[in-house]
Design a protein around this nucleic acid. Structure first.
Lengths: 230, 230
DNA sequence: GTTTGAAATTTGTTATAACACATTTCTTGG
DNA sequence: CCAAGAAATGTGTTATAACAAATTTCAAAC
């Protein structure tokens, strides 16, 4: 055994073979689908249909959906089917109260860990976001925006905090994709992101927080406006 | 059918017949057990044992545990068994960053909805907490403390926020019960609760938030001290 | 006594099937 | 043509069993 251990030690293995179960994969696929807009609010998701699409049995599909309902990413509909929740104005306001509290904190705590290289990378993400806007590539805008925010939050080195923020995004995702079928994003967000980068370069965490909070408040206003229009 | 509806409308039915599945019940029982200290950090929970204790099959036990792992209330141990996580100082600091952000917000937003009657009820909870302290009834102290905090948070009328806070408590629960086997709670918490009640009577939400935040900071210091002692 | 290796046990995971319940569809009677 | 009821379909839920992988136990050899 000694020899094998030594040999293995010299190999450059993947970080973790990370054996994923079918349940985990299903859960992740549903999450991606919800963030990417593959499902629209009000849509009913049945266990057997998902199992059929993914070529698996009912058990892992049921477990994965049960997780999402438990996180309130999905809701129980009639006959205990899972449905993608429709956002109400009240829910949006509540979710943004949570976002402001958590993301404001994460941004402020992540800022001190952002060195010049990381800030450069963030700026490149921001350029990609603007480029996607110019192309009216709305899906890509959402992806770059997500990358921008979470790069900042991850820097805080608080995985549980990051996961909680992701859970909130997941509740907003389907409606974001639903309400903006055509490009409709205001350009104000660009300004706030630029302010955040400037504050990072100035080494001012409080200003980073303020920039992110302004960004969120603008997004909230826009979302509420879009919701009222429907 | 018209007649039946009319008749049912006059009946005083239970709020919701609320048919609970075995999965939901198992999930709730595990949550209660974790908060009540029935499991200690490091303990391994196996699907078959839980299924046997509850007299159910593996499927609902597996689904319920899968939910808890997904929430990071439990962790994967060796051989993919679920284990009750041991808190580290880093995790405690992170969890209290989250608590300060979420519970500070919930307290401040709940305060304006607290009328005189609700404040009286809160004071009675506080009296029960002190009485439990005098009896060295530690488990009851924890229960009354939970009641105190969540009565305030629930008043904000934000169910998703409340659930997120509960999720954080669930991560601290097992270690709280583990680290305080004998009574060791400082009396400083009493002071902060009293300050919160005073601020509620004065109609000063910011002061309520400050009182709760001080309460949390004291708790964090005590928990870190106890953790270092182990 | 210690170590080695194989057998036995225990583990999570998942497919299948059966169940109860709700919904939908179809048929039958007016 | 419409209404009513029955049959068929679709639904979530859960018990069971089989599988693979890890762990533990135990016995045999040195």
């Amino acid at each position: 055994m000694d020899e094998e251990v030594t040999a293995a030690g010299s190999l450059d293995l993947a970080p973790v073979p990370r054996y994923d179960t079918l349940t985990d994969r299903t859960y992740q696929q549903l999450r991606s689908g919800l963030m990417a807009g593959s499902f629209h609010p009000g849509q009913k998701l049945t266990i057997r249909k998902i199992a059929a699409v993914l070529g698996i049995s009912a058990t892992p599909a049921h477990t994965a959906m049960s997780r999402l309902v438990s996180e309130q990413v999905l809701e129980w509909g009639p006959n205990r089917s899972a449905v993608v929740p429709k956002l109400t104005a009240d829910k949006v306001r509540e979710l943004y109260v949570i976002r402001l509290a958590l993301e404001g904190t994460a941004a402020e705590l992540g800022a001190p860990h952002f060195d010049a290289d990381a800030t450069d990378a963030l700026e490149r993400t921001q350029l990609a976001l603007v480029a996607a806007m110019d192309r009216d590539d709305y899906k890509q805008v959402l992806l770059e925006n997500e990358e921008f925010h979470f790069a900042l939050y991850r820097a805080a080195g608080m995985p549980m905090l990051t996961q909680m923020i992701q859970s909130v995004w997941l509740k907003l995702g389907p409606s974001l994709n639903f309400l903006y079928p055509a490009y409709s994003h205001s350009r104000k967000g660009v300004h706030h992101h630029t302010m955040a980068i400037k504050a990072l370069r100035a080494g001012d965490p409080a200003a980073v927080r303020a920039a992110i909070e302004s960004d969120l408040r603008d997004g909230r206003a826009e979302l509420l406006r879009a919701l009222a229009g429907h």
